[in-house]
Write a protein that binds this DNA or RNA. Structure first.
Lengths: 200, 200
DNA sequence: TTGAATTTCATCCGATTGGATGAAGTATCC
DNA sequence: GGATACTTCATCCAATCGGATGAAATTCAA
C-alpha cells in the first residue's frame, strides 16, 4: 500500500530530509535526482505514483516545463517543492499547473496531507477525464490500439484535432486517421457521438 | 483581501471553534448554518469565496449531494469537515468530489493550508476569479465595459467564439463585436495577442 | 521474410472559424 | 430632446476545421 515516490531536488540536505520524512510516512522513495535531464531520462523506467520536485530545478528544462511534461506525457501527479518566501514562483506554479501543489517549510504532517491531496486529485481526475483503456474496450466491446486510445482520451477532453496533433507531435492527418478508425470501430459518424458513447 | 467563508455544520461547538479559528486566520465568516436546506436557501444571496461544510450535515440533501450542487450550480470551492476516524465517509468524499477536501482534527495551520489549496484549485478551474477587472484595466490602462470584461474572461479560458456566445446567450456576432472593441482598446490584432497581453 | 496490423501523412471538400465592416436597438446622462 | 456609450446583430471573406478517401512507412508476429 506504500506509494512509490521520486524526488527531484538539487539541494542535498533537503533531498535527504525529504527522503527520511517520506520513508517514515510509509512512502517508498524509488530514486532521487539532482537535475531535470537525468530525471527525464529515467522517468520512463521508474513508475512512481507521485513525484516531488523542486520548481527551481537545474537542467535544460524549467520546473514549469518539466511539470507540463510530467502532466501531459506521463500523467503522474506531482508536488512542487519551494520555499515559503518564494511567492513569485508559487504564483507562477499556481497559474501554470492546476494539479501541482506547493510545499512550504517541511513538516511531516504538511507533506503527508499535501501528498494525499495530490493523490486524491489525481485519482478523481483520472476517474473523470482520463479514460481507462480496458474499461472502454470492455464497455464498447472493441479493441483499441495505443494511439487510438490516446487520441480518444485527448478527444474526450474536448481538444480539437489540431490540439491533439500538437500534443502528440504528429500531423493533423494522423489524428484524423485514428479518429476515422475509432468511428468505424465504435460505429459512429463523428466525434460528438464517439464521446457520447464513451462517456455513456 | 480577507476571503469570505460560509460554514455548514450542525454541531454548535465545532461551528464556534471553526469560526474562531477562521477569523483569527483573517477569513470573514459570513454565516453559519445548521442544516442543508437553510444553507441552500441563503446561498444565492451570500457570495462566499469558499464553503466549509460537514459531510454528514442534516437536511434533505446528503453532504455529497450538497457538494455536487455547490460545485455544479454555484461553482464555489468547498472543504469537507469530517472527523479523523470517519474513514468511510472520507473515502466516499474522495471518490465523489474531485475538488472537495477533507479536514481532519482542527489545527489552524491545517485549515489554512487546506483552504488555500482549495482556493488555488478553484482559481485555476474558474479562471474568471483570477481575471480581476480592475487589475486588468489598470495594467492595460483601459476601461472595460461589463460585457467586454466577461467576454475577455471567457476568451482567456480558451473558449471559441461559438462557445462564448452559447455561454452568454447571445449571438456569435455580438461576441465578435466585443472582441473587436477589445482588440482596438488593447491595441492588438487578434485573440491570441489579446490573451498574451492580459496574462502578461 | 512475408503479411497483417499499426502508425504516419497528403489531398479534396463542405462546414465552420475568426476577423472586418456596417448598422440597429437600448440605455444613460446633460 | 439630443449626444453618448453600450449592447446587439447581419453580411462578407480568407483561413481553418472536421471528415472521407487513398496510400506510404513502420512494427511485429508467424
Amino acid at each position: 500500500m506504500g506509494q512509490n515516490v521520486v524526488i527531484v531536488e538539487d539541494e542535498l540536505l533537503i533531498r535527504k530530509q525529504l527522503e527520511t520524512i517520506l520513508r517514515k510516512l510509509g512512502y517508498e522513495v524509488l530514486c532521487s535526482f539532482q537535475n531535470s535531464d537525468e530525471f527525464l531520462d529515467r522517468l520512463p523506467d521508474l513508475k512512481p505514483d507521485i513525484i516531488l520536485f523542486d520548481i527551481n530545478i537545474k537542467g535544460s528544462q524549467s520546473g514549469i516545463q518539466l511539470a507540463q511534461i510530467v502532466r501531459d506525457q506521463y500523467r503522474i501527479p506531482f508536488v512542487f517543492i519551494t520555499s515559503y518566501t518564494d511567492r513569485d514562483t508559487i504564483n507562477a506554479a499556481k497559474v501554470t499547473m492546476p494539479n501541482g501543489y506547493v510545499i512550504k517549510p517541511f513538516d511531516e504532517k504538511d507533506i503527508m496531507m499535501i501528498m494525499e491531496i495530490a493523490l486524491y486529485n489525481a485519482a478523481s481526475f483520472q476517474e473523470e477525464s482520463i479514460l481507462n483503456k480496458q474499461r472502454i474496450e470492455k464497455k464498447l466491446n472493441i479493441s483499441l490500439t495505443e494511439r487510438e486510445y490516446i487520441t480518444l482520451s485527448d478527444l474526450s477532453q474536448g481538444l480539437a484535432n489540431s490540439q491533439i496533433a500538437a500534443k502528440q507531435y504528429v500531423s493533423i492527418n494522423t489524428v484524423k486517421t485514428h479518429l476515422r478508425n475509432l468511428y468505424a470501430k465504435v460505429g459512429v459518424r463523428d466525434r460528438v457521438n464517439l464521446v457520447k458513447k464513451v462517456l455513456q
